[in-house]
Amino acid sequence: MKKRWKRFEGYVYIAPWLFGFFALQLYPLVVSFIYSFTDFSMLKEPHYIGLKNYIQAFTNDPYFFKSLGVTFMYVLYALPGKLVFALIIAVILNQKIRGIGIFRTLYYLPSILGGSVAVSILWRFIFMKDGMLNNILGVFGFEAFDWIGNPATSLFIVALLQIWQFGSSMVLFLAGLKNISPEVIESARIDGAGALQRFFRITLPLLSPIILFNFVMQMIQLFQDFSAAFVITPNGGPLKKTYLYGMMLYQNGFQFFKMGYASAQSWVLFVIIITITGCIFAFSRKLVHYEDE
């Protein structure tokens, strides 16, 4: 009897998480799916309306595709920018650089603070028409340019705040690079592999699991992100150029109280994220190298 109980002892420890999973994650997930087929709002009782929310989003919402497009652009700017930059700097710092600690600290600092409203405010101040950047450019004789107010640049400025936070990925890549044994690189060098070849044939494959993990997590986060955009460009920016999907969800759900509709839209995003993640994992089987295989 006692032995049988012993098998389940682990459940004593994971019980809080199990409860939290069912009550705070699975239950809301299911409920949000149900809401998405209703006209639920805070003001009246929900009614089942079938696929109406989804149909409305795809056929009769002036902002839906606009916002989806903006979000894809945002991810396309920020994700490769951040990761490629992080990788390049990590590789440079990995070459026995003196003062590596100082550089690492300084590059990492923006990642610590970058998510705060304070830094978003600073960002808005830097790039606004009479802000810091234009003041500096003015010294060199450039005319003031409205970086945030101009629809051509506004989204990029918001994405730049993400790229500025490349430090957290860099630290990860740096740790991964430290794990690659120097002998492997050295023997490749003796075999006549050039620097670029060594990077693409050895370093990159050995680092690929970390890159994949980081890529996926950052992508999921970027698809939903809107805090910075919300502070820098409160109304979705010029011509709604920074009207990110998360902002649309927030407005529909918590400002217009169209919670059924917002739930449907959130499920569209969810399906998009799952699909892309699935494709990445399927595609990565060929590209990502796991050592134990």
Partner: peptide, 16 residues
């Protein structure tokens, strides 16, 4: 659940 988008569950959580 690390990959579960928080935007999907925030409305039911709010109601709860």
């Amino acid at each position: 659940t690390m990959m579960l988008p928080s935007t999907v569950i925030i409305i039911p959580r709010y109601i709860l």
